[in-house]
Amino acid sequence: MRKILQWIDINFEPVMMAVLFYAITILIAVQVVLRFVFAAGFSWGEEVARFMFVWLMYFSISYATRNQRHIRVTILIKRFSEKVQKYFMLATDFIFLLFSIQIFIAAMKVCESVFRFKDMAVTINVSLNIVYGAGVVGFALVVIRLIQSIVWKLNKFHDSLEIFENYAGIYSGAGHICFLPKSVRKETVRACEGVE
């Protein structure tokens, strides 16, 4: 059971992102062929692709959060000692956690409003919560990933800055994503040998 949970922890967002990306690509490609070759098409294709894109973006935010891949400006923080840098990183995670909880609550309110007013998609007969729910799920995952990051940093506070920071998730399993090319996987495992 532990191995299954570990696999889900490492692979959930990447698998969802890959599935959504390929589904969007196939749907748009079919739409283009139908329109330009057969002068036909699905009336719902563009809207469904847009919905999938929104879900893809929210899974991407969670993935970037899990693996410490968000854009960072470190020119000032690098001037401090390692210990101070670690405190700054923890404070940043806590601030991001508070922000994410606020966004999660706001997304829940939007979904509740959509449910109450029965807002529907234009071309398909589904509630708009099918797209607004992406914010709820996405930021719930972000909150979980931030808590994992804070726990990691608290547990690794006395380790080197590289391990504490865990950039790109190399020390927490990002090198073991199920469809990662073998060369990248070997390189990541080699970089992490002797850690943990």
Score class of each variant (00 low, 15 high):
residue 1 M to C: 08
residue 1 M to V: 11
residue 4 I to D: 04
residue 5 L to T: 06
residue 7 W to Y: 12
residue 8 I to W: 07
residue 9 D to V: 00
residue 10 I to G: 06
residue 10 I to E: 02
residue 11 N to P: 06
residue 11 N to M: 07
residue 13 E to W: 04
residue 13 E to Q: 10
residue 15 V to S: 01
residue 17 M to H: 08
residue 20 L to R: 00
residue 21 F to R: 00
residue 21 F to L: 14
residue 33 V to C: 03
residue 34 L to K: 09
residue 35 R to G: 11
residue 37 V to P: 01
residue 37 V to H: 02
residue 39 A to T: 07
residue 40 A to F: 00
residue 43 S to Q: 10
residue 45 G to W: 06
residue 45 G to Q: 09
residue 45 G to H: 04
residue 46 E to W: 11
residue 46 E to C: 04
residue 47 E to V: 02
residue 50 R to A: 13
residue 56 L to I: 05
residue 58 Y to F: 15
residue 60 S to P: 04
residue 61 I to K: 02
residue 62 S to T: 07
residue 62 S to I: 09
residue 63 Y to S: 11
residue 63 Y to Q: 09
residue 66 R to F: 01
residue 67 N to F: 13
residue 69 R to T: 05
residue 73 V to L: 15
residue 75 I to V: 13
residue 75 I to D: 14
residue 76 L to A: 11
residue 78 K to V: 11
residue 79 R to M: 12
residue 83 K to Q: 12
residue 87 Y to G: 08
residue 87 Y to W: 13
residue 87 Y to C: 06
residue 88 F to K: 04
residue 88 F to W: 10
residue 91 A to Y: 05
residue 91 A to T: 13
residue 93 D to E: 12
residue 96 F to C: 07
residue 99 F to D: 01
residue 99 F to N: 02
residue 101 I to Y: 06
residue 102 Q to I: 12
residue 104 F to A: 00
residue 106 A to N: 09
residue 107 A to I: 02
residue 108 M to C: 14
residue 110 V to E: 08
residue 110 V to Y: 05
residue 119 D to P: 03
residue 121 A to S: 14
residue 124 I to T: 12
residue 127 S to F: 00
residue 127 S to G: 11
residue 128 L to G: 08
residue 128 L to A: 07
residue 134 A to Q: 04
residue 135 G to W: 04
residue 137 V to M: 15
residue 137 V to W: 12
residue 140 A to Y: 09
residue 144 I to Y: 09
residue 145 R to H: 10
residue 147 I to K: 07
residue 151 V to S: 08
residue 153 K to F: 06
residue 154 L to Q: 07
residue 154 L to F: 15
residue 155 N to C: 08
residue 155 N to Y: 07
residue 156 K to A: 11
residue 161 L to R: 14
residue 163 I to E: 10
residue 164 F to D: 04
residue 167 Y to C: 08
residue 167 Y to R: 15
residue 167 Y to P: 05
residue 170 I to Y: 10
residue 172 S to N: 06
residue 174 A to N: 14
residue 178 C to D: 05
residue 179 F to G: 02
residue 182 K to I: 08
residue 186 K to W: 11
residue 186 K to F: 11
residue 187 E to H: 12
residue 190 R to F: 10
residue 190 R to L: 14
residue 193 E to A: 13
residue 193 E to H: 10
residue 194 G to C: 10
